[in-house]
Design a protein around this nucleic acid. Sequence first.
DNA 1: AGATATATACTCGAAATGAGTATTAATTGG
DNA 2: CCAATTAATACTCATTTCGAGTATATATCT
Lengths: 313, 313
Amino acid sequence: MKEAVSIGLSAAILAVEGEQPCVLVVAHEGLHDALPFGPFDPARHRTLELGLRNWVGEQTDFDLGYTEQLYTFGDKGRHLPSSHSGPGSGGRVVSVGYLALTRKGREAAETQWRGWYHYFPWEDWRDAKPAMIESIILPALKKFVKDAGGGEAADMRRERVNVCFGEGWDEERVLERYELLYEAGLVEEYYRDNGLPAKGANLGTAMLFDHRRILATAIARLRGKLKYRPVVFELMAPAFTLLELQRAVEALAGLRLHKQNFRRLVAEQGLVEGTGKFSTPLRGRPAELFRFRRGVLRERQAPGVRLGGRRPR
Amino acid sequence: MKEAVSIGLSAAILAVEGEQPCVLVVAHEGLHDALPFGPFDPARHRTLELGLRNWVGEQTDFDLGYTEQLYTFGDKGRHLPSSHSGPGSGGRVVSVGYLALTRKGREAAETQWRGWYHYFPWEDWRDAKPAMIESIILPALKKFVKDAGGGEAADMRRERVNVCFGEGWDEERVLERYELLYEAGLVEEYYRDNGLPAKGANLGTAMLFDHRRILATAIARLRGKLKYRPVVFELMAPAFTLLELQRAVEALAGLRLHKQNFRRLVAEQGLVEGTGKFSTPLRGRPAELFRFRRGVLRERQAPGVRLGGRRPR
DNA sequence: AGATATATACTCGAAATGAGTATTAATTGG
DNA sequence: CCAATTAATACTCATTTCGAGTATATATCT
């Protein structure tokens, strides 16, 4: 090895508050939002995950509950310009991204929670299909296909556009969509990474380095996992009503669910158990408070909240 | 960063031949089988994956088709003893594992294909539930639970044993099972990594470093992906009969499938299309040859071979 | 011709899924 | 107190999917 390599650990720390899914960001250098990021020090930490937990514990007050490694990025040029490689190091930074789930609490000084649809406004289909898809994204992607100049390259682009934004919204393809918009020059990072002057539509809020890509990976992974592992409960208070649970799932998935079927599912699967206590809502009938039933882990194969969502058009 | 870190890239290169799922290994130092492994040189390679493709191309004759990053391991002490850290480096090795799918071809001199159930004999349920589960694994794990001395620690172990080897075989939990057997001292690597004299049952064939763990991760990922992405076709010849396809899926999943339902599924999903040609088998009625229908990628959300397998007891 | 092996077609009941309607229990404004 | 409103909860129903068969067709081998 001739060039020094250092390892950076980035974490997409996620939470839900009511109907809003959030991510913990640091207002980095006053320029771009960034994910909490720390170096891995092999002298101090036995494993990568322990390194992560260590500096997250130092920088914020969180107890990371569930954590999961996402992906290791080592790109030069693209999302990681070498001029910003990291503190005190001249060489390459390889960054290992993590997903962490937590309950919202008091954050440290420089960090704050932000709704993640600020970064991915096209991903929230709860109220309706986001208008920007028809008005901005699809026309721009049509041009992107055209610019390939016909032939096989154009076919591949057309297929990607269709898979990402065509008929049949697949809520899990968050990363694929972001990568497509990146390549089509629809997000700010594209111009920044390539040293070009910004032009055209810049969709969503940009982030530092490749952090938006890591966040996209995290959301995609979480949306997938939701369906076959009871991960939502990491984000919920110890007791909750079924509607609160549903709203949380909807927030994460970016879709509306059918209420009656949702409760049937959750109940039949044995994911929750009643506490006997009831909520005291401002209006409407009080709902029973439920808690997560740990037993499912033993009993069922894939205990998750399968979401047969409704996709508005 | 005080200590030097180097990045190693390991690849689990998988193929299927008839009924046998294989992995490409190098007979390393005459001691243990190893996965093809190479250093990442940041000076030469723009991305991690390009680095991987580069030296795999050098060491073997393969064109890696589908590749996917699996996991980045940075453990000290455990699977990566620092005395074997890698060529010419004194510090830690962080290893990035990859899954690659290919069609079996002529391999290079030092490499060879081996059936992956040599390393994980408990994972092959095609003929019957492997006898070693009842005769060796479960008794040993029972002792492992007992050794925790009751209380919460024992409960957690019991739950893990139950999830991994209890009622309801989940073919995807390959890594979880391997990790459990490791911790319970049922595989050779446990004794090697901890500098202990080997004792008790050593299940399956051991591999170098943490390579068996990476292979377990690869198999788990592949078994999962099978169901919602048409990855099997990366392993098949351009034309194949439906039974050949089924045998390949069964080999990967380690389960038997219901023939009539399998073809119904594959046909209804539009995963394949007939070529009009027919096989000329040694005995029995000739079967039509099919090819993968690329179109599905556009049309369907999760085009995979959903396997409602039969699990013998 | 008959045995054997495989391909392919079709059936049937059970369970899961998607989309409702109906009813109940609370609050709020008149 | 009554009607409107909001939300919880119960129940229905058609459709699809799934698991497990039976039945029949088309080869080869002896």
